[in-house]
């Protein structure tokens, strides 16, 4: 198995996903099977091949650095779970 208990715990923390202790071994086996499967990639020698990140190789278009949008704070905040005085509320992070 490619992934052990500790690695799964670390990935979950990096991904900000809470996983119940009792589910970690199931994740380890499922994810290891997928990683095993993708290892087939190593059958091809890619030495010297330039990676392709995107179908459009010319690079992405950049726009002029000017303001094009109007302020829509109210409509954007209307869908927020918790807000007050135009601010998003989260649990306290500084004592």
């Amino acid at each position: 198995m490619i992934l052990d208990h500790q690695t799964v715990t670390n990935i979950a923390r990096l991904a900000r996903l809470h996983i119940d202790e009792s589910d970690i071994d199931r994740y380890a086996s499922e994810l290891s099977r997928i990683l095993d499967f993708v290892e087939q990639m190593n059958r091809v020698d890619t030495e010297g091949v330039t990676p392709l990140a995107h179908p459009q190789e010319g690079g992405l278009r950049v726009r002029d650095d000017i303001v094009t949008e109007t302020n829509q704070r109210e409509s954007f905040q209307k869908v927020a779970p918790e807000k007050e005085a135009g601010l998003y509320l989260v649990p306290k992070v500084i004592e």
Binding site: L31, L35, M41
Partner: peptide
């Protein structure tokens, strides 16, 4: 599952073996 796989593939020490390898293969497929 996919978030976990992606997080692993992009994490320090594994990036070249997975993400970069797949991008090279992507060029060969194209």
């Amino acid at each position: 599952r996919r978030i976990m796989i992606g997080t692993y593939a992009l994490s320090a020490g594994y990036y070249d073996a997975y993400y970069l390898k797949a991008q090279k293969l992507r060029r060969l497929i194209a």
